[in-house]
Structure formats: C-alpha cells, structure tokens
Design a protein around this nucleic acid. Sequence first.
DNA 1: TGGAATTGGCTTTTT
DNA 2: GCCAATTCCA
Length: 825
Amino acid sequence: MAFSVDQVLGGLTEPQREAATVVDGPLLVLAGAGSGKTRTITRRIAYMIACGIPASSILAITFTNKAAGEMRERVNHLLAEAGRAGWGVTVATFHSLCVRILREHAEAAGLSKTFTIYDSADQTKAIKQAIKDLNLSPENFQPAAVHSAISKAKNDLKTASAYAQEAPAFFEKNVARIYAKYEAVLAGNKAVDFDDLLLKTAIMLRDNKDVRAKLQEKYQYISIDEYQDTNHAQFVIAHMLAMNHKNICATGDPDQSIYGWRGANINNILEFEEFYPNAKVVLLEQNYRSTKTILKAASALIANNVKRKKKELWTENETGPQITKLTLNDEHHEASEIVRRIKEAHDKEKLDWDKFAIFYRVNSLSRVLEETLMKAGVPYQIARGTEFYARKEIKDVLSYLRVVANPSDNVSLERIINVPGRALGDTSVAKLAAFAGEHGLSLLEACGRVDELAGTGGLMTRAITSAKKLAGQFAAWRAMAYGQPEEADSKEPQPEAHGDDPLFSQSLADMMAEAEEISEEITEENSEFGVQNSELEGQPAAAAVPGKPRVKIKDLMDRIVKESGMEGDLKKNDGEDQGADKLANVAELISVAAEFDAQCEANGLPGTLDDYLEQVTLVSDVDRLKDTGGSVTLMTLHAAKGLEFPFVAMAGCEDGLMPHSRAISFGANPDEMEEERRLAFVGITRAMKHLIMTVARYRMVRGETVRTVESQFFGEMPDECFDEHNLAGDDEGAGSLGYRDEAGYGRRAANERRQYEAVAQRSEANATAGEFKRGQLVRHAQFGLGRIEDISAAGTMTRAVVKFQGIPAAKTLILQYAKLEKVDA
DNA sequence: TGGAATTGGCTTTTT
DNA sequence: GCCAATTCCA
C-alpha cells in the first residue's frame, strides 16, 4: 500500500499534502485562485483509496457536470498509475446526486418514480399557468419575478405553506398563492423543477431517519468543491449526509463566490468552522497559474471587499507583461482590437487558438465579438446564452420523449400537441383539458378517450381523429421505449379515475429491480450519466433487460421525429428558411443521442429513456464546451470559473456592466457590489500571462448608444500593473459626464426626453400640492419603500409609476388613493 | 387556422 | 436592436 500512497502524493507542496491526507473529520480547504485545488482534491480521493477506504463510500460533489467528469477521469488516471482500480467513486453535482437519490427513494420523497425534471423554461410556463388559474394579472405578477421568488424560497427550504406564513406584504402573499398553485401544477404533471431536486432531497433527509441512515452509511467520506457557491438546501443535504461520520471536506474560495444572486450563501464557507468547531483548516495560497503582475492587480482589487477571509496569494512565477488596458470608440472597435491582438499573439507567440479566451459580463456582448471573429476567420466556440437545448425544435423533440417517459406530463404534451399542426389548436386543447380535469385524467388520456367528449364538447371531426391518433402513437412509442410487447395500450382498459402511475410503471419498476440485482454495485456507483469510466474492465454488463437488447434512444427519437410528422413539417418549410437549420439541429440531437447509446453500451449501463432525459436536462452550456476545440473560447465571467487561459481578454470593463448596473442602482444591496468585485476577480485570475481589459467609450445598449464610464474597479488596482492605451479618437475628459451623454444621443433619446418633459410639466400642475416629483422617495403602507419613476396626469387623476424595493415590476398608482408618504433621502 | 405584422420588453449571471 | 409574443388579417 505504501507504494501507492507515495505515488499518489508525489509532487504536492506541504499545504497541499496536508489537505490531501487529512481524511477523517471535518476539513476546510481555503484554496486561492490557481492554487492547485482540483489537483489536491483529486489526490486526496486517490489517497483515501490507496489507504484502503472503499471507493464506494466516497462521494465527491462538484459544481458542474464537466468538473465531475474531469475529476472522475483524473482520479482514475492516478489510481491506474498506482496500480489500483479507481472506479466506484461517486462523482456528481448536487443536482445529479439528488436525482439519483430521489429516483431510488421516490416513495419516501412522495414522488412518482418516473418524475420529469422541468427546466427554467418549463417552470416559467407552469408558473404562468398558475397565475392564470388564479386570475392574477401577469403584469403585476411577472412570471419571471414570481419564478425567482419561488426559486429563492425553495433554496431556503421554504415550502409553499411555510412561505405563506411569512409573507409580509401584498406581493409576497400572492406569490404564496401562486407558489401553492404551481406546486399543484407540478404534482399534476408528475414533475419537479431544478430547485425541487434539492428541496425534496433535503426534506427527505431531514425527516426520514431510515433513508438518512442508509445514505450516511453509503457515503462515509464526502467532499464538496466550490463550497462558497452552495445554497442553504445544499448545505442541509451535505450536513445531513455527513452528520454521523463527520468526514466532510469543503473546498472553495470565498473570494470566488459569484452565485449569491441565485441563493448561494457565502456564509456556508465563512462559518464552516463555527459549524464544525474541531475542523481542520488548510490554506492554499501559492498560485501556480498567473504572473506576479496579474496576481498583484487581482489581490489589490479583492482587498476592497469587507466580507472575506484574508488570504495572501503569492507566486513564484515571473513578473510577466503588464495588463493591457484599452479604451476604444465603441463595441466594434473593441472587438476588432481584441481580435487583432489575439491574432498577433497567435502568430508571433505561436499560441494555439484554444489558449485564448474572451470574457464578458452579459451574454449580449458576445454578438459583436462573434461577428468580428468570424469575419477575421478565427475559429471560436461559445457557451451560448440561447444554447442548443433551448431551441424550439430541440425542445419539441424532447417534449415528445418526455411525454413518452411520463404520460402525465401535460406541460410537455401541450407544447407539442399541435406541433406539427394537427388541428388541435387552443380551442380544442382547452376542451380536452376541461374534459381531463373533470375526470381526473391526464391530457394524453383525455386524447385517448376523446370519443366520450364528442357528444358534449363539439370538437371538430379532424381534431377527434388527430387526438386519437396521437394517443395511439404515444402508446406505441412507449411500448418501444420500455420494451412492452403489446401496442394496444391506448385503448387500454380504463385507467381509473386518478391514475397513479398508470400504464407502464410496473414494467419499469421490474426492469430497475432486475438491473439492480444484476449489478447493484455498478449501476449505483458508476455515477450518473453518459460520462463514464473507461477502466471498467471485466465488469458484467448491466443490460437493461436480459435477453432483450436495450432500446436505443436514437432509434426511438428517429421514429418519433418521422411518425409525428415533425420531419416532414421541417422539410416542407425548407424554402431557404430556417427549416434546413432546424432539421440539421434535430439531426445533431439524434447523433448526440446515438453517442449516449454508444456510451451506455460500452459501459454496460441501462441507459433508459429516463436516464437520457435526465442527462439532457441537467447539462449546462459550459458542459458542452470542448477542451480540444482548437478555437478561441467566448464566455460569460460566470462560466469562466474554474478555468484558465494563457491569454484572456475581458470586454466591457465599464461601470454599469462590470460592476453591473444592478449593483450600482438604487436599492441595491451593498453585498451585490462585493459580488461584482469577486466576479471581476475571477475573470482576472483566469489569465496566466496575458490580460487585456477593454473599455468602449460608447456602447449600444438596448438599441441606444450610451456614453460609458470606465469601471470603478480600475481605480482599485495599482496603476503600475497596467499598460494603458487610449485608442478612442474623440473627446477627452468627457468621462465625468455620467453614464448617458448629456447632449442626448440618437432620436430615441431625444424623443424620450421630450415626452418626459411634457409629462413632467403636466404633472407639475396636477400633482397634489406638487410634492411628488419624479425621483421622489416614497413609502407605501403595503409595498414599502420606493422611488417614483414617472408621474403623469390623466383627467382628475394623477398616476405615479413607482418602483418599490424588492418588487421587480414597477407599480402604477393613483396618487389620490394610494396615500403615498414622502420620504426624505 | 396560419401567417404576417406589430408591439413590447428586455438584458445579469445558471444548476 | 433584437427577439418573442401577441394581435391582426386573410
């Protein structure tokens, strides 16, 4: 054993070695940017195995699927070198781990085994539905805002009723109602959303002693990466799992906490020691990535944050070149200058394209950069905002599959019930839905029994035929997917009033049981998805159903695309439209599915439809980036976390963008500014040697050209770190004018001003006693503190548009009724 | 019912 | 400015 221990720990520095060898008891590794954190954790896991800890009792949680895959690979590689088999460690993200736990303990969690996972788009849709059902106006309750409120509540483990109890004011009270309704919609569709994965797992672990004990025994050694970005639900899950053996290792860097906006709680890491008083703490402060210059600038910047643990990054690397700071005319100038310099470095320094990255704060900046790269013939890849899986045609195909997997999923069915057109428009669907509601059926079941509706509802003959046909098709596809010999299910004997898991759940359960028997170890331990170990020599294949080859997702998909008429529809619309594009995307989806099939085949995994759908739902943009692209990488600062590049360009280093205006604007939590600073810090510390930061003097924002001010963060970093060039041809010294050009820029701005002035004049005359003006701070009995954004007179009424703190949508109030109270700043 | 045309809203970040 | 969603029109 000793031999492998040495091999496993070889080349680690003293602190790294310490972190890797403290295996028992709580451990906190505060790892600065570029301090070899991943390397250390990987070694730590390998060390545990080398010490004889069974791989199956090790759980490693990472932030992205990509990180999970990489870690798995590295652990395997290390152990192979040390002559050990590395498979069997569970490496997962919180979300994928939860899916697994929930499927295994579906009953205990109060879920159907075949639950569908809704992505954000599905969630928003379901929320819209709930808002509509409650007869609330979508204007006052913007689905997106409600969505984020609910999501936040779930991350804090607040169920609908708990949330309702605490709801302080009007808005929240109604959100509570929507929340409850939304939960009902989800349950009706046998669906869970992203947040539910965490919430349901956390609650089950908290309340169900048996399940908790079982999982505690299973995962005796737990390590969690990027701990600074965990939220409350994740915190609870981690500690429920660890509370017995207390072998929990949290690694992370408070300075790189950038997901506060979605509920991550930086205090989880800041207070780890309070939670585990006997925790061992290791600091990794030596940076192996960046030059002294880059590190100096980054350290100076982050030192401005109050909420942090002091840490001094240092490096033995060279001083390196100064950071290039460029001021350009506009975003086009910015893009061309960045591209020019990238090309230059590519040619002169013989750097491959994949050594370059361009970061930006918001996705909208990518457009011009992309165009410029394309024109210049520079290969690039991008973690896109509207990524592949969000495309309409892709979502459509996946919706078909989801309905096959879960016939109760009405949201997915509604999405495609008339795609391609089959005479089932809004009217017909409404009737079907009403019928379904009356009889406690799913929408699909209603389609199958449309005959019974014919007398009453008066559905078009064509619609009736279509509905029946569709129900029949789904039955057939389902039979194919789950290896059911019959195809007769659509006319199946009455699925009784409230079908709990109708149709096929039986066969699925059997299959799962069988698969488990065959190789409990493998299915359980070999991680989730298609990303698999390659070192699985000699393991028995865990085929889904013995004697029957597993159904290929590709074949199923192929069949659905053809039989549903989608293919024909897209071909028909080919007329130099996007039809061809869409068809190509579908083809791409199918070939990715074929890859999934092949992966599962190779690793002897069941690779059921449910597995596939789960995989597809939980991938992110970053996961889709290839390492070996031979291309320049474009991404948001958020996506850049954990990566490194020899040459980095950060575009849009301007106030309003970085830091984002949201953190600057009225009512912003001061913590937000710190998070913006951390975001900039993350960006800067990705760079190994070359760093360019650019400022565009004018930038097109939402169709308006605005005058910008360079980022206030520049003022927090030492001048000597920068090599500054002003390549903007025009005016000097205008930088102090403010965010928007005083003179107005463009017709639209002028128009707006004229309108504003007119309104202001009118309201001046009408406003009660004239004390309310635009910009005035006010207090409202229900909504709280706000600021008047606009004010106007209409007849005898004066209307004020007020933006209240904590309420995303501005409210329009009538002054005579609203009893606004003036607040002095 | 489907396609065109207009509006409106949006822009943080994503598992 | 762009995209999606809604509305309008045939």
